[in-house]
């Protein structure tokens, strides 16, 4: 029997330890597992390394983890946005380390971590500050930078709908980093709007195969418990 449903957001994140490496899906306001992040904040694990495209704005999402001092390092392509006050504050005071990664390199490092690939050569960043200290190679006259996989202990992802096997479909551009992150973490936890029966999702439409997902929590189940 396979049933990946978990009863609450709290239970879904209860085993995330201090110093864990946690990937969090989303791009701007789109496709962010806000309820899982809030559960992680309340859980209170500290010394976290967060891998995500952005660093959160205002008091919500990743910004709340930064505000509460739970984050030691952030791996990110675009940490600074209008309203990213907590990232800017923690960066300026030196309490958070930033590893800045070009966006396509970030998603590809995550993708290969889930795909069992040991590295890739990308033209992105060649000859720039972000390639300093990295191996480079010239192929057919074009310069490339060697980039390595970026795995995580946990991935918190957001989808529209899932089934008990963990198959997922997404809402519009909300998929962004979520499918790659699902494949790249030891434990992947998906927050969805609704859970349907196995067989109800059109197999032609499933974006993330359930094999990549370990736990599934629905907003409505959470409300039913509360």
């Amino acid at each position: 029997m396979i049933d990946k449903r978990v009863i609450s957001f709290k239970e879904a994140v209860a085993d995330i330890p201090d110093d864990a490496v946690v990937m969090i899906g989303g791009f701007g306001s789109s496709g962010i597992p806000l309820k899982l992040i809030e559960a992680l904040r309340q859980h209170g694990a500290t010394g976290l390394t967060i891998i995500s495209n952005n660093a959160g704005v205002a008091e919500e999402g990743i910004a709340s983890l930064l505000r509460d001092g739970l984050v030691r390092k952030i791996v990110c392509s675009f940490p600074r946005s209008a309203g990213s006050i907590w990232f800017e504050k923690r960066f300026e005071e030196g309490s958070v380390e930033l590893e800045l990664v070009p966006q396509g390199t970030l998603s590809e490092r995550i993708r290969i971590a889930g795909a069992g690939i040991g590295g890739f050569l990308t033209p992105t960043g060649y000859g720039t500050k972000l390639a300093e200290g990295k191996e480079t190679r010239v192929i057919d006259g074009k310069g490339y930078v060697l980039e390595l996989p970026l795995p995580a202990d946990f991935a918190l992802i957001r989808a529209e709908s899932g089934d008990p096997w963990g198959n997922l479909i997404y809402n519009t551009a909300g998929r962004n980093f979520n499918p790659m992150m699902a494949s790249a973490a030891s434990i992947t936890i998906a927050e969805v709007n609704s859970i349907v029966a196995v067989g109800d999702l059109n197999p032609e439409h499933i974006v993330t195969p359930g094999i990549f997902v370990d736990r599934l929590v629905a907003e409505e189940m959470h409300h039913a418990q509360a």
């Binding site: 306001s29 789109s30 396509g104 998603s107 590809e108 809402n171 519009t172 551009a173 998929r175 499918p179």
Partner: peptide, 28 residues
């Protein structure tokens, strides 16, 4: 507005008929 359907500048957008969505690795 759909909070999931935004552009790179984080502004709300729409999809034209014939448009499609894909993940970030495919986008890059």
């Amino acid at each position: 507005e759909n909070p999931n359907l935004i552009n790179a500048g984080k502004q709300y957008v729409t999809l034209l008929p014939g448009g499609c969505y894909f993940d970030n690795a495919e986008s890059f």
